[in-house]
Design a protein around this nucleic acid. Structure first.
Length: 627
RNA sequence: GCCUCUGUAGCUCAGUCUGGAUAGAGCAUUAGCCUCCUAAGCUAAGGGUCGCGCGUUCAAAUCGCGUCAGAGGCGCCA
């Protein structure tokens, strides 16, 4: 796929390459020149700079500046080129100035032609990526740390779709764990009722805190929990049916939070279905064929099936280089199950899961779930790349899965990616589901508060044209945009300390700032009765050039963001575009411009709106038309 | 003990992968800008031993080694 910036870069490289050839320097390839091209720190230095002269200095035994001058004297470019001129600067930089007369037209035409596809990459052959995120225990509401996981995963999914991947989003439901067993115990033994009609996940989450206190006091309850876990694992009994019923209710309640944030999934994968489907048995057979997986006959891991990790450098921090996959009683450990599950994700098992369509999500997309009463399908799984958004504390078990794929001889291990994110903290410490420190900081609470505060801001402004319900809807879009953005703009590996004033700020580098820039575009465009934008007059203002250059970078930014699996790249880019647009907006009149300039500037505003809105969509932040 | 991550302005963070020009934002502080397209905005100013040391390099926040501080991890738990 070709876009103007790509052409510009090629022209820069070949122009310099040609001039080097003229000077009889023939061993510098275009790739080397390409790598020496960088963005300038300031508009005054042009748009790109070439640092090749620093590399040539040693070889030619001349000063870089001198070489730069020689090159610049031998440079030739034609009038239709996107390059306007070059200048030698500093110790030997070759600064490249863009011919904005030509380049601007090409960029704006390209944006206008592609519309809401602008910035996205079209690929002929789609690579399938499975992104697993959220995966919150199904017995409590999301606290803000869970929202971070989900927003990171959802945004990565949006970025990778834009980058041309076929993305399948899965939410793994651990419905066989101890946490669920404890909630089941609460139901059986204490028969507690949701008599205040709380949202189901909040109710069960609060009960979970209470029942943990009971567990502290009465250790004999541990026996009950063990029995429950065993029944749930076996399936086909009263307890397992009850557990599935409770967890489904809880997951459904959690999904309401997700939907509110614009987070959607393709498939819910239930651990109980994975166990029932006998994926594990098939995986065990495959694993035992590997020399690195053995059944221990003696030692501390007698009768266990273990994965030998002693040759792996990445596992140096482990006390023991043996990772138990199946316990001496034959049951699978977490890592054992995870390996089987990932063999399935990559389509490496013959056995498959069964699926049911469970609901239509608010984005009109079907949500599927694994279910043993469902039907077979080859639509799910079979990923070329697997991305797991999982806490950084799980780095070792994640690495163990990757190594298992490697020792089994599957090249897929290279495409197994753990997005390790740090947790959200409260100033006083970690969130704890068990201790209930999340109370008051559930994602639902925070979204409510964000909406409330956005509404206060709306009321400060004259919004008499809006009805109350429209105001509420707008407040929700702004509040949630702010919350999503704060989770996106910070690198995943940095700890976030939650503070209301940070999370719910609507000024500066925030979600609403981006939305506001888009609203300003709409506001101008609304006033234009018949849009008759054209590109007859060249753009001459610095503000215009900088905005156009920035907008031209969207395709490569999306590509990089997807490649790096990094949401901050996309977030920072969106902020840059918005900042440059606001600067243009404040310093360059559009509707009040000289007559000849009005139409070209409208074209620029149209293009800006396209880019801003496309970026908002990729970040999962609502586009609004009034603020 | 070993492994991983983090340390950049008063605060919160980009920039580190791929070394490049005076280290950038936002918040907070200070001074301006609404008879002119929505001020959730714009234009400026002040504010920095890029944790510290040594090394590599024409050039280091960025690469290497060491060191200090904080967080997480190293189970037949999940």
């Amino acid at each position: 796929m070709v876009y103007p910036l790509m052409i510009l870069k090629k022209q820069i490289v070949s122009t310099i390459h040609e001039s080097l050839k003229k000077l009889d320097i023939n061993d510098i390839s275009e790739t080397i020149i390409k790598d020496s091209i960088e963005e300038t720190p300031d508009y005054a230095f042009g748009s790109y700079a070439c640092t090749i002269c620093f590399d040539l200095a040693k070889k030619l035994k001349k000063a870089p500046r001198e070489i730069a001058n020689t090159i610049s004297n031998n440079i030739v470019f034609d009038k239709d080129s996107f390059i306007k001129g070059i200048e030698v600067a500093g110790n030997g930089y070759i600064n490249i100035f863009i011919n904005f007369d030509n380049f601007s037209k090409a960029v704006i035409k390209d944006i206008s032609k592609r519309g809401n596809e602008y910035g996205s990459i079209k690929t002929s052959k789609k690579t399938k990526v499975i992104i697993e995120h959220t995966s919150v225990n199904p017995n409590k509401p999301w606290h803000f740390g869970h929202a971070r996981n989900a927003v990171l995963g959802d945004t990565l999914a949006r970025i990778m779709r834009a980058a041309g991947y076929d993305v399948e989003v899965q939410n793994y439901i651990d419905d066989l764990g101890r946490q669920v067993a404890i909630s089941v115990l609460d139901n059986i033994k204490f028969k507690s009722l949701n008599d205040k009609n709380l949202k189901f996940d909040h109710w069960t989450g609060l009960r979970y805190v209470e029942i943990n206190k009971e567990l502290e006091a009465d250790k004999s309850l541990e026996t009950d929990i063990e029995t429950i876990i065993k029944d749930m694992e076996e399936g086909g009994n009263k307890t397992s049916v009850l557990a599935r019923d409770l967890t489904e209710k809880c997951v459904f309640a959690q999904l309401q939070t997700a939907f509110r944030m614009g987070i959607f999934y393709n498939l819910l994968t239930w651990e109980s279905d994975i166990v029932q489907s006998k994926l594990l048995e098939e995986a065990t057979t495959i694993l035992l064929e590997s020399k690195s997986v053995i059944k221990e006959r003696e030692g501390p891991n007698k009768d266990c099936i273990v994965l030998k990790l002693d040759k792996e450098k990445s596992m140096e921090g482990m006390y023991s280089s043996d990772k138990v996959l199946f316990r001496s009683n034959g049951t699978a450990t977490y890592t054992g199950k995870d390996i089987a599950f990932h063999l399935w994700k990559f389509g490496l098992l013959k056995k498959n899961l069964k699926y049911l369509k469970t609901m239509k999500q608010p984005n009109k997309q079907d949500l599927w779930t694994t279910n043993n009463n469902g039907k077979k399908s080859s639509d799910f799984g079979h990923g070329d790349i697997v991305v797991n958004v999982i806490g950084a504390e799980q780095a070792y078990p994640q690495e163990a899965v990757r190594i298992a794929l490697k020792v089994l001889g599957y090249p897929h291990f290279k495409n197994y990616i753990h997005i390790a994110y740090e947790h959200v903290w409260l100033p006083e410490g970690k969130f704890s589901g068990r201790k209930g420190t999340w109370v008051g900081f559930s994602t639902d609470d925070i979204l409510d508060e964000a909406t409330k505060r956005a509404l206060v801001e709306i009321e400060k402004r004259d919004k008499s044209v809006l009805s109350d319900s429209e105001k509420t809807k707008l407040a929700e879009a702004i509040g949630i945009g702010a919350v999503r953005y704060i989770l996106l703009k910070t690198s995943a590996f940095k700890k976030i300390t939650f503070r209301w004033e940070d999370a719910l700020s609507f000024e500066g580098n925030t979600g609403p700032y981006l939305q506001y820039a888009s609203v300003r575009c709409s506001s101008i465009l609304k006033r234009v009765k018949k849009i008759k934008s054209n590109l007859d007059v060249p753009f001459v203002k610095k503000e215009e050039h900088q905005l156009i250059f920035e907008m031209a970078k969207m395709p490569e930014t999306i590509k990089k963001s997807a490649y790096m699996k990094d949401t901050t790249i996309a977030a920072t880019y969106a902020f840059n575009v918005a900042t440059l647009f606001n600067s243009f907006y404040n310093n360059v009149p559009v509707l009040k411009a000289e007559k000849a300039e009005v139409n070209t500037r409208i074209a620029l505003v149209e293009a800006s709106k396209t880019v801003l809105d496309n970026m908002l969509n990729i970040l999962g932040i609502s586009v609004v038309d009034n603020m």
